[in-house]
Lab assay of single mutants.
Amino acid sequence: LKTAGVNTTDKEMEVLHLRNVSFEDAGEYTCLAGNSIGLSHHSAWLTVLEALEERPAVMTSPLYLEIIIYCTGAFLISCMVGSVIVYKMKSGTKKSDFHSQMAVHKLAKSIPLRRQVTVSADSSASMNSGVLLVRPSRLSSSGTPMLAGVSEYELPEDPRWELPRDRLVLGKPLGEGCFGQVVLAEAIGLDKDKPNRVTKVAVKMLKSDATEKDLSDLISEMEMMKMIGKHKNIINLLGACTQDGPLYVIVEYASKGNLREYLQARRPPGLEYCYNPSHNPEEQLSSKDLVSCAYQVARGMEYLASKKCIHRDLAARNVLVTEDNVMKIADFGLARDIHHIDYYKKTTNGRLPVKWMAPEALFDRIYTHQSDVWSFGVLLWEIFTLGGSPYPGVPVEELFKLLKEGHRMDKPSNCTNELYMMMRDCWHAVPSQRPTFKQLVEDLDRIVALTSNQEYLDLSMPLDQYSPSFPDTRSSTCSSGEDSVFSHEPLPEEPCLPRHPAQLANGGLKRR
């Protein structure tokens, strides 16, 4: 031991701790050491302190810390799992109470259905409401065949629209698609105040090879029609059969078919879209009749726009005509997947739907009320060519290029400059510069009032120099000039209409 001194630092001082000593042992101690050379000694003081209470040693090893962490984590996880189980049990009790009230408590799974309603004014964004509309049932219905791709499903009954099956008599087919079909039928007692009145209706139903998605689409269309409500110039929902059998959606019946066929059937002799010497046209149409058709469609679209509904496929083929020549817009409630459109795929009647699409819908897939206005301009062109085919002879690839360059279709022969300028306004490259349906209704209403009933179509000018029955994407082998976009001569082996020498072909294109 070194004694503290003047020249001794703290580091040089050493402390020796002795245990089991008493206060009597306190004092100075000297350590002597010697050898043959000499003797040396050092002294140190022993200080006795009071004994401290002994405390248990605390484990601070890493293993002990890990044990604490794992135990704490396990406890927290157990609490979370327990909370989830309690929540599930409570929510399951509430669901079972709800389904027992709906009398569908025996169901095993559900079809996820979404009601898609486009509400954005400047995009294709949609509001999806995840309302459960249908659930599968283990119960089988008697007297009705089961669908191959869709098991029997039981829908919640809506008393406002439900019609008993025994009050619906199915008739002949009116048309069909890939998985759905429409048949003519007679409904008894659609009007609650007149329970014995028989009404001719159209009934939409699924085919035998339909899938769950097809069922989902049909129900979504029905729900959309319920929500949009009734208007004179749209196909209205009349009722539905949802209980004890396949789903039947009952809508208004339009006896004169779609507008395109309606116009073609009323072309003057010699100007029909397909040469037929025995062709006997229906009643002749006046200019006022054509303007009235456009006015009614505009009114229907104005109503749909007021309900925040974007059609996305407005064309003469999707406008139906009733016995009283009332125009009714159809298929506005269809669920369309705008992100998976095949631009080169034709519709069932051979038309390319892209020829009715606005550039922003075609290139950027942006659907708005103003893109519907563009389609309405093409529909106007169809009306005043009596069912002509837009951009005849123009392949899709060429159409993309022409639209980007600002080309537009030429004025039809039997169309006034004012109406043609309306078409051109609908085809404005900037969507915000196109008229609204409200403005179109006002303009067409004024034109109808000024147009005489006696103004019949000028038969001295050809209505349509093209054969719409030909595929639109076909290139002409005998077109006049180098560019078949601006002219389209008859093919030698097929009868077509004579070309008027002083008139540019109706399907020609102009640059805006």
Rank of each mutant, 00 (worst) to 15 (best):
Y343S: 01
I329K: 05
A240P: 01
N196S: 04
K213Q: 09
K204M: 01
S452T: 09
M222T: 04
I338S: 06
E398V: 12
K226N: 06
Y253N: 08
E418Q: 13
R167K: 10
D209E: 08
G481W: 13
K230E: 14
L362I: 08
S467C: 06
N417D: 09
D342A: 14
P246A: 08
V201E: 04
Y367C: 03
R446C: 11
F376V: 05
C241G: 07
K230R: 14
S286F: 09
R446G: 07
K172Q: 10
S375P: 05
H279R: 10
E397A: 13
D483Y: 15
Y391S: 03
R336P: 02
P435T: 03
W374L: 01
E455K: 05
T436S: 07
D331Y: 11
W381L: 02
E405V: 04
S476C: 13
H279Q: 08
L352V: 02
Y248H: 11
T416N: 05
H340D: 06
D472N: 08
S371N: 15
Q439P: 00
P353H: 03
N414Y: 12
H279P: 05
L314P: 02
C309S: 07
Y295H: 08
S476P: 14
T322R: 06
T473N: 09
N258Y: 00
T368S: 04
A240T: 03
Q284K: 11
M409K: 01
L314V: 09
D191N: 06
S413G: 07
L184S: 15
H407L: 04
K328Q: 13
M222R: 14
N236H: 15
I188F: 13
I235T: 08
D217Y: 08
T416S: 09
A316G: 01
K226T: 14
S255C: 12
I219M: 08
D166H: 03
R299Q: 13
L247F: 06
E442Q: 10
V441E: 05
S375Y: 12
A187V: 13
P269Q: 05
H279D: 03
K307N: 11
L379F: 12
D324E: 15
V297E: 01
K288N: 08
R197C: 05
L190R: 14
E176K: 12
R474P: 06
M227I: 07
P412S: 00
G171R: 12
N453T: 08
W427L: 00
L362F: 03
R267T: 01
T436P: 09
T242S: 12
V203G: 02
E405K: 07
A294G: 05
D289A: 10
R266W: 04
R266Q: 04
D410G: 09
R197H: 10
L285R: 10
E398G: 13
P412T: 00
Q439E: 11
P462T: 07
Y273F: 05
D244V: 10
N325T: 10
E261A: 10
E382Q: 03
C293F: 08
L304M: 15
E252K: 14
L352P: 02
I219F: 15
Q296E: 13
W356L: 02
M227R: 12
Q370K: 11
A361P: 03
E418V: 06
T451P: 14
L259P: 01
Y262S: 07
E360D: 03
L238V: 11
F179V: 03
V183A: 14
K172R: 10
D209A: 08
E223G: 04
S306P: 01
E186K: 05
L450S: 12
A429P: 12
L238P: 05
V396E: 07
D337G: 12
G189A: 11
S208P: 08
D483H: 15
D483A: 15
P281R: 06
H428N: 09
D445V: 12
E223V: 13
Y343D: 00
R446S: 08
N318T: 00
I219L: 12
S432A: 05
F384I: 11
F384V: 10
D244H: 14
D372V: 02
Y303C: 13
D313G: 02
N258S: 07
I341T: 14
C241S: 09
I338V: 09
Q264L: 09
M422K: 11
P246R: 07
G350S: 05
V396L: 07
I250M: 07
L399R: 01
N349I: 07
G171V: 14
T473P: 10
C478F: 13
K346N: 15
S220T: 09
D324H: 07
D410N: 04
I228T: 09
P281T: 14
K194R: 11
L403P: 02
L450V: 12
K213I: 04
K213R: 02
P471L: 10
L218P: 02
K232N: 13
N233K: 09
K288Q: 07
K256M: 08
G229V: 15
W374R: 04
S467A: 07
K207M: 12
M301R: 00
N325Y: 09
F384C: 04
D191H: 08
N417Y: 13
R365G: 15
K207Q: 04
P277T: 08
L285F: 06
T211S: 07
F332S: 03
R474Q: 10
T211R: 09
R317W: 00
G239A: 06
S467P: 13
C415S: 12
L168P: 14
G406D: 03
E223Q: 10
G189V: 15
N280T: 15
V251M: 15
L271R: 06
D342N: 15
F437V: 04
S432T: 13
G257V: 01
A449P: 09
N276H: 07
V321L: 09
L190M: 13
V485L: 14
G175E: 03
A330P: 03
L174M: 06
D364E: 04
E455V: 07
H339D: 08
Y248D: 04
K230T: 05
K230N: 06
V198A: 06
Y466S: 13
D472E: 09
D209V: 07
L399P: 14
V201L: 10
Q454R: 13
F179I: 03
D193N: 09
G245A: 13
A265G: 10
C178G: 02
N258I: 00
Q181H: 09
V394G: 02
L419V: 08
K200T: 11
N276Y: 07
R312G: 00
V201G: 06
Q284R: 06
G300C: 01
K307Q: 11
F400I: 04
N276I: 06
R365P: 03
S287A: 09
S278R: 09
T385I: 04
V378M: 02
L263R: 01
A265S: 04
E418K: 13
V373E: 07
F376L: 04
I250N: 01
Y275N: 05
L263P: 01
K192M: 13
R317G: 00
G393S: 05
V249A: 13
V326M: 08
Y253S: 01
L259R: 00
A185G: 09
V198M: 12
K401Q: 14
K256E: 08
P412R: 00
L263M: 06
D331H: 03
E398Q: 13
A210V: 06
K308T: 04
G180E: 03
G377A: 11
D364N: 03
A361E: 02
S484C: 14
A335V: 01
I447V: 05
R424L: 09
P359H: 02
L285H: 06
S480L: 13
R267K: 02
F437I: 10
E302Q: 06
M222K: 14
S371G: 03
L168M: 12
K438T: 11
G189W: 03
F376S: 02
P269R: 14
K204E: 03
D458Y: 07
L247V: 07
R197P: 05
A202P: 10
L459V: 06
T322K: 15
S278T: 04
Q181K: 04
D193Y: 06
M409V: 00
D289V: 07
R299G: 14
K226Q: 12
P468A: 12
V201A: 10
Y275H: 13
E186V: 04
S216P: 12
P281A: 11
L174V: 12
N276T: 14
I383F: 02
V430G: 10
L218V: 05
A187D: 14
D464G: 05
N318S: 00
R336G: 01
D364G: 13
M357K: 15
R317M: 01
S278C: 07
D472A: 11
D209N: 08
S371R: 11
I235N: 15
L206V: 09
A335S: 04
H339N: 10
I366N: 05
P435S: 02
D342E: 10
D425N: 08
M327L: 10
P359A: 03
